[in-house]
Design a binder for these strands. Structure first.
Length: 292
DNA sequence: AATAGTCGCAACCGCCAGGGG
DNA sequence: CCCCCTGGCGGTTGCGACTAT
């Protein structure tokens, strides 16, 4: 299918806020002819708008039985519940709320509810406790570092296009992680938690009973505050300001990690150290592929 | 009182699916 | 089967109102 021009990409099509006069024209037309065939509505109603704009105005504002007052606690609760179940399917959620439009629900979520959840320590995207998510991020971070390190065994970092001696994927990941971490309040100290998914690999004992592998030594107390304060990422992002933090040369068989001689001692180094320990202790589980 | 920053909402944009020719 | 049109949807933007400094 070819690229279709936008339906409003025409001359003499007004944009922006609707006036009372325009509303009256649209209302008069729809009350006489009903909805449908929105493309023809502007012409027949005497409006210099595109059909799409008319439909939106009708759906979100002029339609009868719309509620314009604030959301009730019951409505809030329903939105949160439905969002946790089906995600941002606003039209479906709005269908469960008489008098509300998808736009209403979406705006209310974006401006109020998501912030409210975040303040209560709940991630508005996953509806999981933020502290739990940070643990997952820690695991992913370790995996990413390991993956990036392993990649250097086949493709030296110095060959990564456009980023000098840095791996662009790693830089992007680090930037995103930093955004996430900075966007949430620092949580209370991590509580003991179930091993991450990758450690829950199927492991059968002699009797054939499915059993969990022994809990590996989790990287304990990743110091987020310290991490952010030290800004381990900055070295990655400001490639010429400092060297990559001790990127390592990796043996082809991943058997040995060799710290670069002169990089700053960093969070990443610490992670790599711990990763090395884990790799050696649980080689059977992580074997030839990565955690995720 | 003036200015900057933030918030809330209406509207727009671009993509997609479904239906008709 | 292909192409085009339309309606619907979710994400994003623009801007007026409000608040803080």
């Amino acid at each position: 299918m070819g690229i279709r021009p936008p339906c409003c990409d025409k001359l003499n099509v007004k944009k922006g806020l609707w006036t009372a006069e325009e509303d009256a024209k649209l209302l008069a037309y729809v009350s006489t002819h009903g909805t449908g065939n929105w493309t023809n509505v502007p012409k027949k109603a005497g409006l210099k708008r595109c059909g799409k704009s008319c439909r939106l105005r009708w759906t979100n504002y002029l339609r009868p039985n719309l509620k314009h007052e604030g959301f009730t606690p019951q409505e809030e609760e329903l939105i949160v519940t439905l969002h946790a179940t089906i995600g941002s399917r606003w039209s479906i959620i709005a269908n469960q709320l008489p008098g509300r439009t998808d736009n209403d629900v979406k705006n209310y979520w974006n401006t109020k509810l998501s912030k409210k959840l975040a303040l209560n320590g709940i991630d508005p995207v996953t509806h999981r406790p933020i502290s739990e998510i940070k643990q997952s991020i820690t695991t992913l971070h370790i995996a990413a570092i390991t993956a990036a390190t392993a990649a250097t065994s086949t493709q030296p970092l110095s060959s990564a296009a456009g980023v000098g001696h840095h791996d662009s994927r790693l830089i992007t990941l680090n930037r995103d992680l930093k955004k996430i971490l900075l966007s949430h309040p620092i949580p209370p100290p991590l509580e003991p938690a179930a091993p991450p998914v990758h450690w829950n690999a199927v492991n059968r004992n002699a009797a054939g009973v499915r059993a969990l592998p022994p809990a590996p030594p989790r990287p304990q107390e990743l110091e987020w505050i310290q991490f952010l304060a030290e800004d381990a990422f900055s070295c990655l992002e400001e490639q010429d300001a400092c060297r990559a933090p001790s990127f390592v040369a990796v043996d082809a068989d991943f058997g040995g990690l060799e710290a670069a001689a002169d990089g700053p001692s960093s969070f990443i180094e610490e992670i790599l150290d711990r990763d090395r320990e884990i790799m050696s202790e649980f080689a059977g589980f992580v074997g030839g592929h990565y955690y995720f």
